[in-house]
């Protein structure tokens, strides 16, 4: 007999919140790729966005504000057979967790990272986030562009951006991201423009600004330098590049770190199984 478990809760977002679109496309991608609920771990950050794990039927881990990436990396290293998806807000990932973001890009663990970018701190009621534009709630700083940052870090292997209002593109990007990480190619970073209708309603603005790079003739998502150049040109023109912006080859963290085909979570750690080799180490203490 198979055990029953929790029933996912209904989303708590405001009607019209972009995060609904993220949830819908994530569900669709997981089901179209036939990824088992028992083999999926969704790690949420803290924020409106960071409640998405509660709405899915799988293993969920709600981490601390900004700490979803190290948490997800720890999970992946303990059991690389899992599909590990970290999902959180732009404040979570680009402000308090920005150090981990940089290091995850550099480290290339085979996990998916979805950032629900809304230019604000939704949950704390509308303060400027690192992606806020100048003038928003007194913001005087230039917005942080995570795609340009990700492209600039050697070792990053998958950089994409979607828009929650464009479900077809977003579901496709989600699937590509999951396939990238599940084939152990490394870190799949997917920023989703996900408007906060209550504190920063950017639907209209973003509809005008988004620019699908994959629809552009001759765009090569496998060339880091030209991808960066093109993305940056668009930013200067006040456009927001979307699509699969870059996919490259780099060794994944697990490939360079794990030494056993058996996940740590399932290794035989009994004293009996290891005694002779422990004894050898003990001899070195003499």
């Amino acid at each position: 007999m198979t055990a029953k478990f929790y029933t996912p809760s209904a989303p708590i977002w405001c009607p019209g919140c972009g995060d609904f679109g993220v949830l819908a496309s994530l569900k669709k991608a997981l089901s179209e790729l036939r990824i088992g609920s028992k083999d999926t771990v969704v790690v949420g950050g803290i924020g409106c966005s960071g409640s998405i794990h509660n709405n899915l039927e799988c293993y969920g881990f709600h981490s601390l504000h900004g700490r979803l990436l190290p948490t997800a990396i720890g999970i992946k290293l303990a059991n690389p057979r899992l599909t590990v998806i970290a999902a959180g807000g732009d404040g979570d990932g680009y402000a308090i967790g920005s150090g981990h973001f940089i290091h995850a890009l550099k480290r290339n663990p085979s996990i998916v990272y979805i950032v629900m970018q809304n230019g604000t701190y939704g949950l704390t009621k509308g303060q400027p986030s690192p992606t806020a534009i100048p003038g928003y709630e007194g913001n005087v700083e230039i917005p942080f562009d995570a795609v340009l940052t990700a492209l600039s870090i050697q070792g990053s292997s998958f950089v994409a951006r979607g828009f929650s209002a464009n479900q077809t593109q977003l579901t496709d990007l989600m699937k590509k991201a999951i396939m990238h990480s599940n084939s152990n190619k490394g870190f799949a970073f997917l920023e989703v423009l996900s408007p906060c209708v209550t504190y920063n309603d950017t639907y209209k603005l973003w509809r005008e600004q988004v620019y699908d790079l994959n629809a552009e003739r001759g765009y090569d998502p496998h060339n880091r330098a030209s991808a960066f150049k093109r993305a940056y040109e668009l930013v200067l023109q006040e456009k927001i590049p979307t699509g699969l912006i870059f996919e490259g080859e780099a060794d994944s963290l697990e490939k360079n770190t794990l030494t056993s085909p058996v996940p740590i979570a399932f290794q035989d750690i009994s004293i009996e199984a290891n005694l002779p080799r422990y004894q050898e180490i003990l001899n070195d203490f003499h």
Partner: peptide
């Protein structure tokens, strides 16, 4: 936090 992730997953 990485430690917590690994411990949660069974290490």
């Amino acid at each position: 936090n990485m430690g917590l992730g690994a411990a949660y997953a069974g290490a």
